[in-house]
Write a protein that binds this DNA or RNA. Structure first.
Lengths: 269, 269
DNA sequence: CCAAAAGTGTTTCTAATACACCCATGT
DNA sequence: ACATGGGTGTATTAGAAACACTTTTGG
């Protein structure tokens, strides 16, 4: 076996490497199409929704699907290449929705089962996007319709029966997105991504209740949030009156912390 | 906006769909190469290691890299298509290492930055593999050498200076793998993937100590593991004598639980 | 007997929970 | 005044951490 000395980096010979690259043919490998799909989640009046579009083009014409599209691998007639996969995700989605300035975007997973798309081998990199309440989307190219669909219509949540069966394997991708969002609320400060820049503790609690589908103890939640360093920062302001009476709550903004110590665990009911 | 009724699934007209697919040309899209890379982690005598291979082919000839290779999108001269991405990962890796019967394999992330490979646009799906102590790998096709490299040689861990700088963006992939493993030990029962089928609580603790790079309180760890339902099951047997004296510890096997309730949190020192 | 390693008992402290209560505001 | 929602005090309980101690084995 190699000893320590042998583990030093080997040479990367410049001249030979240049000659190799000059003679390289990128068409030599079997192509697979690479797409990005975006599972955009938001909360509208206390109910979690996912953004879906109705396909106007084949295959699976007429079905609801995640907004997605092909990654631009190289500069071409359609436009410049996507510098990285998150750029592709935001490009594809902004063709269909007006996005907030700084949405939370994270990679969810990559789906490449043979036969998941009838046209050819398609590898889809799925992204999870969390956003505060966005305006209704407008349908884009190849799209008959675009809408925010409640999770419950896809069978997620307490006793919800599925009413929509998305195209391809997108039902599974949405399920993964929902589960990712639920578990990330436990140990990250991600819930604030569902809220506008300034919010009250009660709004934050409603995010948790909507995503987890379970009521939380308001008083203890309040204390726990304030006791978690870096989760929220006091703006010093109060929310405008709600109209129906009650004390005006303080306004907070997202703090610097990404991870929560300690986490907020959801346990059994 | 669509009302509830409109959200029902649209028709997927069979005849029209068939005609569309018959006329479809898979070469119409800009190709990108899709590869799988495997970050295989193990622990050898208390020290965490990652499997790397030294590249014999261009580009980046002579550098250490993660074992990886192109996904077989369709059946071809090299062999049948990979049914799914995890199959591709195991195929690529088993060409270089003798694998345990049931290794833990999970997707880590997908890397597609433009320019990360000088040949062409390459989208790499990275997998994390956790395994008990494996035999030394043998070098395979296009591989000058294959070896288990300590994480510390890549700069991970207490005050470790990097001695190996992997090819492409593989240093970042290994960093993601290490961080994923560290955090998954907290809230899943994954540590047992580093151990043989039967193990002692002390061996399990040594896994945590190696991955987290920090000593744990033996007595409290012992109790906490046994108090976590489904983490381990008593085999009823005792480990053979260690030779240097001391009580013979009980042997346990992995329990059914995937998630730990409550989690084992690593906090500050 | 002594050393070494496994495993248990016990105390102390911190954090989660539940519930009562006070505060600020609209009607 | 009183209803409504925000926010705090406090007792109870569960769990984490620290440390002393017992048990089982080899030399």
């Amino acid at each position: 076996m190699a000893d320590g000395r042998d583990r030093e980096d080997g040479p990367v010979s410049g001249e030979e490497e240049r000659r190799f690259l000059a003679g390289y043919d990128p068409r030599a490998f079997t192509p697979a199409a690479v797409t990005v799909d975006v599972a955009a989640l938001t909360i509208r009046s206390g109910v979690p929704h996912v953004l879906l579009v109705r396909r106007e083009a084949h295959p699976q014409r007429g079905r609801w699907a995640l907004p997605g599209g092909f990654v631009r691998a190289e500069d071409g007639p359609d436009g410049p290449a996507d510098p990285d996969l998150p750029d592709a995700a935001l490009r594809v989605l902004s063709e269909k929705t007006r996005l907030p300035a700084d949405p939370h975007l994270e990679q969810l997973g990559t789906y490449g089962r043979r036969g998941r798309d009838p046209r050819m081998r398609v590898i889809s990199v799925a992204y999870l996007l969390l956003a505060p309440d966005l305006p209704d989307p407008r349908a884009g190219r190849d799209t008959a319709e675009a809408a925010w669909i409640p999770w419950s219509d896809l069978g997620h949540g307490e006793g919800a029966r599925p009413r929509v069966e998305p195209a391809f394997d997108h039902a599974g991708i949405v399920a993964d997105a929902v589960e990712r969002a639920r578990s990330k609320l436990e140990y990250t400060a991600l819930a604030t991504a569902f809220l506008p820049p300034a919010f009250t503790i009660t709004r934050l609690r409603e995010v948790y209740e909507a995503v987890w589908g379970r009521p939380l103890h308001a008083a203890n939640f309040h204390r726990k949030i304030l006791a978690t360093p870096g989760f929220v920062e006091d703006t010093g302001e109060l929310a405008p009156s709600g109209g129906s009476g009650g004390r005006r709550p303080r306004l907070y903004r997202a703090g610097g912390a990404a991870l929560l110590h300690p986490p907020l665990l959801r346990s059994a009911p």
